[in-house]
Structures are given as C-alpha cells and as structure tokens.
Design a protein around this nucleic acid. Structure first.
Length: 421
RNA sequence: GUGGGUGUAGCUCAAUUGGUCAGAGUGCCGGGUUGUGGCCCCGGAGGCUGAGGGUUCAAGUCCCUCCACUCACCCCA
C-alpha cells in the first residue's frame, strides 16, 4: 500500500517540538494576562464574506490565498487566513461592547493561506493574535508595543527591529493617495507590470515592490507622514513620544504599508534579518473603521499578530526535555507483574514511571532506562521479590541500595517530590 | 502563478571521466558481561538509488517526462 503524505504546506508538530510550542504559549498567556488581556477562541471556519469585507477585496489574501469552498451548495465558507476578522465578528455578534467599553483579547491558533511554501511560510501556520477594542488613545498603541517587546524578551528573542509608521485615516489618506498616484503616473512606463496594476487598485503597495526600477521611482515618492491630517499627526507624534518614554528602540519607516486594507493610523512590524526572505516575525496596527465595516458599532481597535513558526525558529535552543522519573526493570514473570503494578500505581500518583513489557534481560532494560533519560531505576528480580525488597539505582552515579518493597511506593514518591522542588 | 536547487538505509550524507558502487556515520536489534545503562569492541537487520521512459555492452551517474521537497520572486506572521 502506498503511504499517504501530509498536504503540501501543512506540517506535523512532532513530540520533540511540542514542549517549545507550549513554552511560548504559556509565556504569551502570562505576559498578556498581566496586561489585562483575556483569551477568546473563535472558529477556524467563517463565511467567506467576513474576510472579503474585513480584509479587503483588493488584497492578495482575498484575491488568491484563501481556502474557500461551497458548503453543500448553498454558501461559501473560508478557512480563516487571519484572526482579526473572526474576533471582530464575535465581538459584534455577542455585543461584547455592551458589557464593557474596552475589550482586550487574544487568541492562539492556526491560520490558512494557500501560498507557495518556503522558508518561514506555510499553508497552515500559527499566530498569536492580540486585539484591543474601544480605545483610540496613542498611549494604548505604545503600550501594546511595549507588551510585544516584553513578550519577545520573555521568549529570549533579541535580534529584531521594530518599524513604525502611520497610515493616516479616511480623512487624510485620499490626498496622500492622490499625490502618490500623481507621482507614479509621471513615470508609469518604468514601473513593473504588477505596480502598473496596483496604480489603480492599491497604489500604496508599490512601496513594497522590490523590483529595482520601481524602487528608484518610489525612492522620491511622497511620504505618508507629510500628508497626515492634524489629528493623525498628533496621534502619531504622541505614539512615538510614548515609545521613547518606554525606551523602546524603533525605526520610523515612512514607506511601510501593510497588506491588509483595514489598517489606519499606527502600523508596525517586527522584523529580523535571520529569517531569510520572510523577515516579519510580528506585525499589526490600528483599524479604527473595521468594526463598523463589519456591521458593528463605531469602535476603534488596534492589534498585532505574531508568527509562531517564525518566532520558534528565532528562539535559542533550549533543553526543554521531558523524561520519565523512574524505570522499573523486572526479571522473571512474577517480578514483571509486580513492576507493572508499581509502575502504574506511581503514575496514578503523578510520577512518570516506565517499565518493560518484553521480558528482555536486565542489560537491555537498563539501556532503555538510560535512553529515556530516567535519573533512577528500580531493579526487581524474583530473588528480591522473595526477600521483600528491591534495588534502587541512581543512574547518574550508579549507586545502589536496598529498599523494602512495602515502602517502595512511598519512597519513590517522596524522592520525586523532593527532586521536583 | 513564475524561476533556481535537490531527490541514495529511519536520520545526516559518500560513491573518480557512465565500468563490483550500492557504502559510511548515526539510530535500531543482538553479543562481548548466564542479573547492571553510558565508553569501547564485534555482529545483524534495513535501500526496485523519488516514479516512468530513453541512450548504452553497461546508468545512482547522461537525456526526457512526471512527482515530491526546498529556496527565491510575489506577499505576509
């Protein structure tokens, strides 16, 4: 029979890797809690319309990257390509704004985008997603970045840069957009085909283009900060001032734009040079009009997402191993049964114990204990059984002593609790 | 969607101009120690060399097609 492989771009997270995943998740939860965030869990599947309206029709995600299918011939559903839209949907659907004017939420889970896989980019990938709804104060924007930086520190990631920019609001963006279009139109012929198309759909995205010719044209293009309305400008200035208040090193990148349409005002990205072409570890920004666009009240919001796989590949290696506490080696049928019993009694008391099922020799059993990384082993043969005792072996030093069988369970349990302190 | 690279044992990789080339290390199993792991020594199992076709006396090696993986463009976390 031919074996069935995983779907392209979908990865198994094997037992050797899961401890690190859990470690990151736990640290995220701890950090977010202390900043007042609560967890929300939303479905992986939503109506396609949610993402079309939320993320924007002209974005790459909606245009060509979504896993969309017709469900039983009556409605289009999509595997979520990001979490924000779903969280906004839940926020509106359950009237969370009514209970509290401010909602601080986070979620951790898989996202799906049908792109060509490469280093740091998968079709199913995982994000840690954080949102603050109901506050538009620039202090909140700075505080969110403070929390993100703190979290990165907690997972021992140091080599990164925070880039910030303001994308303006519906009041100031049209004039900026017009200026960019005017600038680009003059040299339209020198633009790459993609950018020529973007001229109509989303001219700001030409800023991202890496084609050398486009880079030159964009080099002296108008910059967003110069076109911000007084309100946006003040917001951005204050935001930057608060970043400095926290001594958060950051870089102004007036050419940074984001691939999702809903962003307004503050935008930021955490980048690193260590990831190859996929240099963004985290990214986010403010989206003051999104909730209303999705049929909710006019509530401002800001959030960010961290790419789990990318984060993990940046983390320094850590011996977050998992090993049993004791191996019960048994010789002879009667001893094997006793060892089997003790092993499971220990497990019921919360001590990770392993034993042998093969009836192999002592050498093979100790070898197994060593391979598993057990710090201790119990040796129990019919000989010991008859004398009502067992051998307690320290695997590191090789010291051995006799333990009365009647007190063995308690002895092991006590040693275990002592050691886990 | 478009390019480039790579496919040999579970894993990491070797195999001169096509000519005993199907190997090593590691892991696994066993023995050296009839009841004592790690180090060392010895042995064993395990591969239609990604798949299919072609050239040739001879193909892991050259050519074609397909597939998979990978990196990059694009975009983003």
């Amino acid at each position: 029979m031919e074996a069935i492989g995983a779907v392209k771009g979908f990865k198994d997270i094997l037992p050797d890797e899961t401890p690190r995943w859990r470690q990151v998740e736990e640290r995220a939860r701890r950090v977010f809690s202390s900043f007042g965030f609560r967890e929300i869990r939303v479905p992986l599947l939503e109506r396609t319309e949610l993402f079309r309206r939320g993320i924007g029709e002209a974005t790459d995600i909606v245009e060509k990257e979504m896993y969309t299918f017709l469900d039983r011939g009556d409605e289009y559903l999509t595997l979520r390509p990001e979490a924000t839209a779903s969280i906004m949907r839940a926020y509106i659907e359950h009237h969370l704004y009514a209970a509290d004017p401010v909602a601080k939420l986070y979620t951790i889970g898989p996202m799906f985008r049908r792109e060509r896989p490469q280093k740091g980019r998968f079709r199913q990938f995982h994000q840690i997603d954080v949102e603050i709804l109901g506050l538009d104060d620039p202090r909140v924007d700075a505080e969110l970045i403070l929390m993100l930086a703190h979290f990165l520190r907690e997972v021992r990631i140091e080599d990164y840069e925070i880039e910030v920019n303001s994308l303006g609001c519906p009041r100031c963006r049209p004039s900026f957009r017009a200026a960019v279009v005017a600038h680009l139109k003059g040299r339209e012929g020198d633009l790459c085909p993609d950018c020529r198309r973007r001229l109509d759909t989303n001219p700001l995205r030409t800023f991202d283009c890496k084609v050398p010719g486009c880079g030159e044209i964009v080099a002296d293009a108008p910059l967003i900060p110069d076109y911000l309305c007084p309100d946006c400008k003040r917001h951005f200035d204050d935001f930057c001032r608060y970043l400095e208040l926290f001594s958060l090193r950051h870089r102004l990148n007036p050419k940074m734009v984001r691939g999702l349409d809903y962003y307004t005002k503050t935008a930021f990205e955490v980048t690193t040079t260590l990831l190859g072409a996929q240099n963004a570890v985290a990214g986010g920004g403010r989206y003051d009009g999104l909730i209303r666009t999705l049929g909710g009240p006019d509530v401002p919001g800001i959030g960010f997402a961290v790419g789990m796989e990318r984060l993990l590949s940046l983390m320094p290696p850590d011996g977050a191993g998992e090993e049993p506490f004791v191996f019960l080696a048994a010789l002879g049928e009667r001893a094997q049964e006793t060892a089997y019993l003790i092993c499971n009694r220990l497990r019921l008391r919360g001590v990770w114990a392993e034993t042998d099922y093969s009836g192999k020799g002592l050498k093979a059993q100790l070898k197994r204990a060593d391979k598993l990384g057990c710090p201790f082993a119990v040796i129990l043969g019919d000989r010991e059984l008859d004398e009502g005792r067992a051998i307690w072996r320290d695997m590191e030093g090789g010291d051995q002593r006799q333990i009365d069988l009647k007190t063995l369970d308690d002895f092991i349990f006590a040693t275990y609790t002592e050691r886990s302190k």
